[in-house]
């Protein structure tokens, strides 16, 4: 190709600079055209015989429990052709599962609710995906849909802001995660990871315990319960580590071993807290019952 361009350049220069040998130039044009046609044909053959590739999705199967960009694309494409009517949120739950099964049934694919290669290819052929539109609206936290039958501009409304980029067990909300991450960061940001998960677990243990309020907000904002609430550190912006710690606690980890209290023995002033049966020490915190 470089050689061809070079030849063409020399040919033009020959005409412009010296005004010589038009016949020689005509031959060169012919050769050039022949070479280009040959290359295009070769490239075309190579493309036609190459293995099937989908210019969308990653190479992995997408199934229930999955989360992320592939699921966003799957939900968008299913919605584009009217199979998915739920929120495009990147979380592969039952809503996406039934929509995908319906699509598979309608298009004569094996009905398993898993977006494998064949299903993804069929879906790409049957739908369109405006990634920029979808991602922009997700990032802005807008309320939007992505039906192919309506103008996109008419499908966008103002939402409540960007949601947390995580997948939680059904009984917890994004707001619970945010609030707990704030509490963990405010209370234990200097502690080892285990200590941060343990603080989150104490909040959850309190929700389950009859002596405490039964909501995340109720437990965290119970007067005199957490120092970070009293001194305002709860409103510091939590880092990813604090969020991950909360996520692990919400998913069943409890390094505190069922504690409902913890305190820093260096700074604790209440005599009562020392009367609680102690379970274990993590970092600077003693966890107790």
């Amino acid at each position: 190709m470089i050689q061809l361009l070079l030849d063409h350049f020399l040919f033009v220069n020959n005409i412009n600079d010296f005004g010589q040998t038009i016949e020689k130039g005509g031959m060169k044009v012919k050769k050039l055209v022949i070479r280009m046609v040959t290359i295009i044909l070769l490239l075309g053959c190579a493309y036609a015989t190459s293995p099937v590739q989908i210019k969308a999705f990653s190479s992995q199967n997408v199934a229930r429990g999955a989360f992320g960009d592939d699921v966003i694309e799957l939900q968008s494409r299913l919605q584009y052709i009217g199979y998915y009517t739920g929120t495009i949120d990147g979380t592969f739950g039952y809503g996406t599962y039934w929509a995908l099964r319906n699509f598979q049934e309608k298009y004569g694919l094996p009905v398993d609710g898993i977006a494998g290669l064949k299903t993804r290819k069929k879906l790409v052929d049957a739908s369109q995906y405006d990634e920029k539109f979808v991602k922009d609206n997700l990032n802005k936290g807008n309320k939007f849909t992505y039906y192919g039958s309506k103008p996109l501009a008419s499908q966008v409304g103002k939402g409540a802001g960007k949601t947390e980029n995580v997948q939680l067990p059904a009984k917890y909300s994004d707001q619970d995660l945010k609030l707990m991450a704030n509490a963990v960061y405010g209370e234990a940001r200097g502690e080892p990871y285990e200590g941060q998960v343990a603080v989150a677990a104490v909040i959850l243990n309190r929700i389950e315990h009859p002596d405490f309020p039964d909501t995340v907000g109720g437990v965290i904002f119970q007067p005199l319960a957490f120092t970070a609430v009293a001194d305002g550190q709860i409103w510091l912006t939590p880092n990813e580590r604090a969020k991950e710690a909360v996520l692990d606690a919400i998913n069943g980890w409890d390094p505190s071993e069922n504690a409902i209290y913890y305190f820093n023995p260096i700074t604790a002033t209440s005599k009562w807290i020392w009367s609680r049966p102690q379970i274990k020490k993590i970092g600077l915190h003693i966890f107790a019952n």
Partner: peptide, 16 residues
Amino acid sequence: VEMSQPGSPYPFYHIR
């Protein structure tokens, strides 16, 4: 390796 505190309802080893 630490043993749990005496107030723990069940004793366990805490290994870091």
